[in-house]
Each structure stands twice: as structure tokens, then as C-alpha cells.
Design a binder for these strands. Structure first.
Length: 164
DNA sequence: CGGTTTTGACCGGCGC
DNA sequence: GCGCCGGTCAAAACCG
């Protein structure tokens, strides 16, 4: 059951996604990056809860299956040579898994802000390494920490909300 | 030293 | 019931 992101973007040929290997969040030198924003479908939602039991961090005991907070999911495709897409926020990589039908693994990032359980996934097409699909989960509850480049400015303007 | 990354293992869900 | 898959966490290693 792969995500339905494939239909989110006008993917040209194959329907495979992939991601960069050890992609870090250096100062994204996104020179000529093309942004194609699109709202998620009403099928990408599952059990998105923010009750991530991190080490030594508990505040609210939520029961699963009781009420799942629909987290907004934003997915957009970017045309970049580098897999490092810096939006101005601080991300901590918490996992890397390879996806079937794909040659490259998928990287999972999480906002290092306390209380900001925003997650980000980066996928790269096996066929088109020049295409990077980034999926954002949740909303940042804190201002941008730094002004890396105007890339954050672009994101600020493309704040879109899902139909949920 | 702190923060972050890396790899592996584990978990939960669902499919058959 | 078991297997499969995706997703997350964990400990250790590495960097600045």
C-alpha cells in the first residue's frame, strides 16, 4: 500500500519514488528549484497522532482509536539536483527506509523544536533523480529559527491547507 | 560536549 | 495465524 502521492504530481513516466541517501540539511543551495505545490488527497490520512512517546517526554495520555487529530499533509515536488531541501527549519533525521519499487531509500526528518511534532519525508525518484518529492506532516508552531535564504520566504507564501 | 547522524531492530497494521 | 510493509525508536558513532 504505497502512498497515493503518485497521483499528486504529474509524474511523467514511471511511478516510483525514491529518496536520497544520507541527505543532510546543509545550507540548501537550491539554485533553480521548481516548486509544484499540491494539496494532499483525502486518502493519505491514517492514524496521525502526535502522541509520540519520546524519551522522557509525556504530557497527554491519549488513547489510540479515540480521536485522531487529522494532521495536515502537504506534498510537493521539487526539481533540484541536491536532495537537501532547507526550508529554514531545523530537522533531525530519525530514520531511513528503503521503499519497494524504488532504488533509493526514503529519509524521515522531524522538527527538533519542543512541541513541534512536524515531520518531513524526502523521496527521490529512481528514474528521475532530478525530482525530489517532499512531504510535510503537521504545522510548525514556532517561527523560523534562521534566515538561511529566501527559500523560506517562498514556503511562507505557499502555506496551503488541506481540505480536512 | 552537545547535537546529530547512522544502522538495525521492533512495532503495528493489513493482507492473504 | 502468519507474512509483509511501512514507520519509528534506539544505541552508537561522528562532527563542529
Amino acid at each position: 500500500m504505497d502512498n497515493n502521492y503518485s497521483m499528486l504530481f504529474p509524474c511523467p513516466p514511471s511511478s516510483s519514488y525514491t529518496i536520497p541517501t544520507s541527505g543532510l540539511m546543509n545550507n540548501g543551495q537550491s539554485s533553480n528549484a521548481f516548486l509544484g505545490l499540491k494539496p494532499s488527497n483525502n486518502n493519505i490520512d491514517h492514524h496521525l497522532d502526535d502522541d509520540h512517546h519520546v524519551k522522557g517526554d509525556e504530557s497527554s495520555v491519549r488513547k489510540k482509536g479515540e480521536k485522531k487529530a487529522k494532521k495536515p499533509k502537504y506534498a510537493f515536488q521539487t526539481r533540484s539536483q541536491v536532495d537537501i531541501l532547507d526550508d529554514g527549519y531545523r530537522w533531525r533525521k530519525y530514520g531511513q527506509k528503503a521503499v519497494k519499487n524504488n532504488k533509493f531509500p526514503r529519509s524521515y526528518y522531524r522538527c527538533t523544536h519542543q512541541g513541534c511534532n512536524v515531520k518531513k519525508q524526502v523521496q527521490r525518484l529512481t528514474r528521475d533523480e532530478g525530482v525530489v518529492v517532499t512531504t510535510y506532516e503537521g504545522v510548525h508552531t514556532h517561527p523560523i529559527e534562521k534566515t538561511t535564504d529566501n527559500f523560506e520566504h517562498i514556503l511562507s507564501q505557499m502555506q496551503i491547507y488541506t481540505p480536512f
